[in-house]
């Protein structure tokens, strides 16, 4: 379980805080989607959980332990992180990228190799074909699969994902998010997933947390949000998929 208690991030020199007094609890094995417009503070919130960004105030507890008192490097090695735009190391092979966190943890070499192959297979990249390639030789979707494998390598039970499929073609994107939803269930992971796409949020999330201007506006299951939106902003946001489906049906009907 991850508990965020009144966390605030105010960058020095910036006007309003990027994240203000945010309270949120994420259950074990839950798939939580964090949604909001660009600049609403999603990445900042996610980064505070593994302390890539240090909160200005507030408390963070991970599995009951005070995360702000823990060693940040050890904390990060216990969590998987998939970056916006993959963030693979261009000078390392696919296998070296995937095996990086186990290597930092000092796993024996054969174990790392076995784990790497296992993960490449899990994200549906043939190990013998991709192992020794470099990131630049892969398509965007394939790179994102590698980034996913890398995040899973050290068997974390918490996954932090920042718009992981945002830059991909729609078909590949649907493919990947379906794959990931399955992996999340199979491995019993706790996932916090950032997106700005409500369709993706509703398809993936057990619960959805809506952010606006650094504030948490509402948290709930897709149905709770649909049936009882906290305000007009949430209502507009949650209804975008339905509105678009309706407009699409209309357009198809009107088409010659």
């Amino acid at each position: 379980m991850i508990e965020l208690q009144g966390i605030t991030k105010a960058y020095p020199g910036a006007g309003a805080p990027s994240v203000s007094a945010l309270d949120l609890a994420i259950e074990d094995r839950e798939f939580l989607v964090l949604i909001g417009e660009s600049g609403s503070g999603k990445t900042t919130t996610l980064n505070m959980i593994n302390r890539l960004v240090e909160p200005t105030s507030g408390n963070i507890r991970v599995d009951g332990e005070d995360a702000l008192a823990a060693d940040p490097v050890a904390l990060r090695r216990r969590m998987g992180y998939v970056f916006q735009g993959a963030g693979l190391f261009p000078h390392l092979t696919i296998a070296e990228n995937v095996g990086i966190t186990p290597r930092l943890l000092g796993w024996p070499k054969p174990e790392i190799e076995a784990r790497t192959d296992e993960l490449l297979a899990l994200v549906r990249l043939a190990p013998e074909e991709y192992r020794n390639r470099f990131p630049r030789e892969l398509s965007g979707g394939q790179q994102q699969r590698v980034a996913l494998a890398r995040a899973l390598a050290a068997r974390p039970h918490i996954m932090l994902m920042d718009e992981p499929f945002g830059a991909l073609d729609p078909l590949i994107r649907d493919d990947l998010s379906e794959d990931y939803r399955r992996i999340h269930g199979d491995l019993g992971l706790t996932t916090i997933f950032v997106t700005h796409d409500m369709t993706e949020a509703m398809l993936l999330g057990d619960r959805i947390a809506v952010m606006k201007d650094g504030l948490l506006v509402q948290v709930g299951t897709p149905n709770e949000l649909l049936n009882a939106p906290a305000d007009d902003f949430v209502r507009a946001l949650i209804e975008t998929p339905k509105t678009r489906a309706r407009r699409l049906a209309q357009a198809l009907r009107d088409a010659p």
Partner: peptide
Amino acid sequence: RSVKMAARGVGMT
């Protein structure tokens, strides 16, 4: 910056 961020993110000192 993103590469340096990733280095910290995967748990590098």
